[in-house]
C-alpha cells in the first residue's frame, strides 16, 4: 500500500512538473518572441508584411496570443478571436513542441498555416539560438548583448510562472508581501515584478510605483551573472549590483530566481 501511494505521489509530481514547464515555455519562452522581434533584424524581416494573431492553447494553462503586425510581435495573456488557433492535447504535448519532438494541432485560422510552418518556425529557431548559445557565439559583443536581454526577459517572466504554479514558489510568493520589485540596468532594460494577492506578474517597468530595486551597473554584469560567470554576492560587495528598498521582497525574488535556473536548465 505504501509503495502504491508513493508511486501515485511521484506521478502527480511529474504531471505538475510538466505543467509548470509548460507555463514557463508558454508565458516566458514563447512570450520572448516579442523581445526578439524588437531586438533582431532577422526577426523583423520574418515578421514584415504579416498581420495575424496566433493563439496557443494548452489545457489548464491561460492561453497566450502572439499578435504579429508592422514587423513586430506583441504577446498577450488570454485568447483573441480570429486567431490562428493552436491547440495542444496536454502540457506534455506543448512541451514536446517547444523541444521539437511534437507538432501543434491547428483548429482555426488555417490560412496562416504557411506562416506557422515557415516564418514562425524560423523565429523560434532564432530565439533558441540566443537562449542556448554556443561558446563561440558569446564572443561576439552584439550577440552577447541580445543573449543577455533575452535571457533576462525569459528569467523574469519564468519567475512569475514559478511563483504561481510551483508549490514552493507559491509559498515564497505569499511571503513576499504586496508591491512591485524592479530588476533593471538603468537606461537599458527594466522588468517589474508585481506581487498581489499571492500571485506574481512580470511586465516591462514603466518607471513608477516600485518598492524594491535590484540595479545592475551594466548589461555586461547582468550577462555575466546570468551566464554564471560572476558571483552575484561578490557583485553586491563590489557595487556592481545595488539592492535597495524592501529587501525581503528582493530576497524572495532571489529565491525564485534560483528556481528559474532549475526549470530552465
Amino acid at each position: 500500500m505504501r509503495l502504491r501511494l508513493s508511486s501515485v505521489y511521484k506521478e502527480v509530481k511529474a504531471v505538475n512538473l510538466e505543467r509548470i514547464r509548460a507555463c514557463i515555455n508558454l508565458h516566458a519562452i514563447l512570450r520572448n518572441l516579442e523581445d526578439l522581434g524588437d531586438l533582431d533584424d532577422d526577426a523583423r524581416t520574418l515578421l514584415a508584411g504579416h498581420d495575424l494573431r496566433i493563439g496557443m492553447h494548452v489545457p489548464g494553462i491561460e492561453p497566450l496570443t502572439l499578435a504579429v503586425k508592422d514587423g513586430a510581435i506583441r504577446a498577450k495573456r488570454g485568447s483573441e478571436a480570429g486567431s490562428l488557433r493552436l491547440q495542444f492535447a496536454s502540457p506534455r504535448h506543448f512541451n514536446g513542441m517547444v523541444g521539437g519532438s511534437s507538432m501543434p494541432l491547428p483548429t482555426g485560422g488555417f490560412k496562416h498555416l504557411g506562416f506557422l510552418k515557415g516564418n514562425f518556425a524560423a523565429l523560434a529557431k532564432d530565439l533558441e539560438k540566443y537562449l542556448r548559445p554556443g561558446a563561440d557565439d558569446l564572443k561576439d559583443p552584439a550577440f552577447r548583448d541580445k543573449n543577455t536581454r533575452l535571457t533576462a526577459s525569459a528569467a523574469m517572466y519564468a519567475l512569475s510562472e514559478i511563483a504561481n504554479a510551483d508549490p514552493v514558489g507559491r509559498q515564497i510568493a505569499r511571503a513576499m508581501g504586496e508591491g512591485t520589485a524592479v530588476i533593471e540596468v538603468p537606461g537599458v532594460l527594466a522588468h517589474a515584478i508585481q506581487s498581489k494577492d499571492g500571485r506574481l506578474t512580470t511586465s516591462r517597468y514603466e518607471g513608477q510605483g516600485a518598492q524594491a530595486f535590484m540595479r545592475f551597473d551594466s548589461l555586461d554584469t547582468l550577462g555575466q551573472v546570468l551566464l554564471g560567470e560572476l558571483d552575484s554576492y561578490l557583485c553586491i560587495g563590489r557595487g556592481q549590483i545595488a539592492i535597495s528598498g524592501r529587501v525581503p521582497m528582493m530576497d524572495n525574488i532571489n529565491k525564485l530566481l534560483r528556481m528559474v535556473s532549475f526549470y530552465l536548465a
Binding site: Y233, G237, A242, V247
Partner: peptide
C-alpha cells in the same frame, strides 16, 4: 572566501545599502 564576506557581517546579508 565565498562572497568575500559571507553571513550577516557581509555587505549582502548585512544590507549595506548603498554599499559604498
Amino acid at each position: 572566501i565565498p562572497a568575500g564576506i559571507y553571513g550577516h557581517l557581509g555587505p549582502a546579508e548585512g544590507c549595506f545599502i548603498p554599499v559604498e
